[in-house]
Design a protein around this nucleic acid. Structure first.
Lengths: 241, 241
DNA sequence: GCCGATTTGTCCGTATGTATC
DNA sequence: CGATACATACGGACAAATCGG
């Protein structure tokens, strides 16, 4: 059940676009028509359309209307996008997965780690290394640093299930902003020891900083993916300069 | 000169954040204060803040205020983000670059190309292959398909300068939406023949679909980067479900 | 624990500008 | 030229979260 009028409109339009009730390259109903359909103000439909545009679903044309840019995607591989958990993504892509924790320690943030992680020196952290398997093949190596001032009573067992289920549903932590840096880097000894790499000598690497709704840095993670199990989709809108 | 009030506020706040006048983790002035400073309505300051939030510069906290999440980045390598041209990016990163066109042909879109590119079968296209050098090292291979119904009179010489300068300043084409898919793929024979790859056996690959403001598909490009000359930054905001 | 001040979140209605047809 | 459609901006109302007294 959508909380807000805005969200209702956003979801409804998105669904109609995905189901191709509004097909690729066709115009949606005009803003004025949508105002009547959803019984709301102009600003509210515009907010929904704006969000759909930033997600690449539609594009507004001044003096013309709003056009669908959505085409169904057909990809076999693993796909990430937005702030999505590994599990969500796996379910969405209909893939069987498992997680194996290979290291679970308490550490204190030192000077060197502070520079890359963004945690303050002296912050108590969980340091976790885990291998993620897709279709029983170990293909992703995750290195997590969680802020112990925010995350409490974490166990190996929880990590093997889903960290984010625990954070959100048990600890009621609101995740708000996530910044990521994507690079492609050489395979390390650590990768070779823990993953099945075939002859790949590079990995897709994502370094992520995650903040709570209270603006505390709560997670720093390095996620190393075998190339053939990595893909990332992005939409950019040219700023109206 | 900013066209709109909104843009002025957005730029001014961004500058103050980047110059750390509003430092990392500190609160910006409240919306009501900003209304007075910029002599505008609440919605207008909120639009600016919203955009800064989607770019990872700030985060709003209900009942508290808006906090800066900006920390200066220090990277030596090549960085892309948003819809930025190769040239812009190079200038921003203070790097010398050059472009060498190795193939420039007119083709017609066939069935196979239509599936990946999204152009309709029969669309006349420019097919261009070029190598981009950074610090005189050939490290990026670009394969462009441009819609000839939109792009006219393109020449090898223009491509060697800057396609986008020509498209925007000469042809006055407005670029609006760009969708990209990032993957990491095996080095091909084509890569080996044209680039200096050392012993890397993978490439960072970006496949991009670009639409005009008129919602016409105008470009499909495959851009293959040597791993050590590739990085991409991204910010995601959790949807308030 | 309660109340009030402050701050952001959501929503509305209206006016004006500008692009398209 | 007029009708339609999106873009920008204003001002107001109320809700929800936070914090201090």
């Amino acid at each position: 059940m959508p909380k807000s009028k805005f969200e209702h409109i956003y979801r409804d339009l998105k669904e109609k676009i995905e189901s191709e009730e509004y097909p690729y390259m066709e115009l949606l109903p005009s803003e004025n028509q949508l105002i009547e359909v959803y019984d709301c103000s102009r600003n509210t439909v515009r907010r929904a359309i704006k969000l759909l545009a930033t997600e690449g679903y539609v594009q507004s044309q001044h003096g013309v209307g709003v056009r669908s840019l959505y085409r169904p995607i057909h990809r076999t591989n693993y796909l990430i996008g937005g702030i999505e958990t590994f599990k969500d993504s796996a379910i969405r892509n209909n893939i069987t997965t498992s997680t194996h924790v290979i290291s679970f320690e308490d550490i204190i943030c030192d000077q060197k780690l502070a520079e890359t992680s963004g945690f303050e020196v002296g912050t108590p952290l969980y340091y976790i290394k885990k291998v993620r398997c897709i279709d029983n093949k170990p293909v992703i190596l995750d290195i997590n640093y969680f802020n112990k001032r925010i995350i409490t009573d974490l166990t190996k067992e929880i990590v093997e299930q889903s960290c984010y289920d625990y954070f959100e549903n048990e600890l009621h932590i609101d995740i708000a902003t996530s910044k990521r840096l994507f690079t492609v880097e050489r395979v390390t000894k650590q990768d070779q020891e823990n993953l099945e790499l075939n002859d790949y000598n590079c990995m897709a690497v994502i370094r992520g900083h995650v903040f709570t709704a209270g603006s505390e840095l709560f997670e720093y993670t390095i996620s190393r993916h075998r190339p053939d199990y990595f893909a990332f989709a992005d939409t950019a809108i040219r700023k109206h300069v």
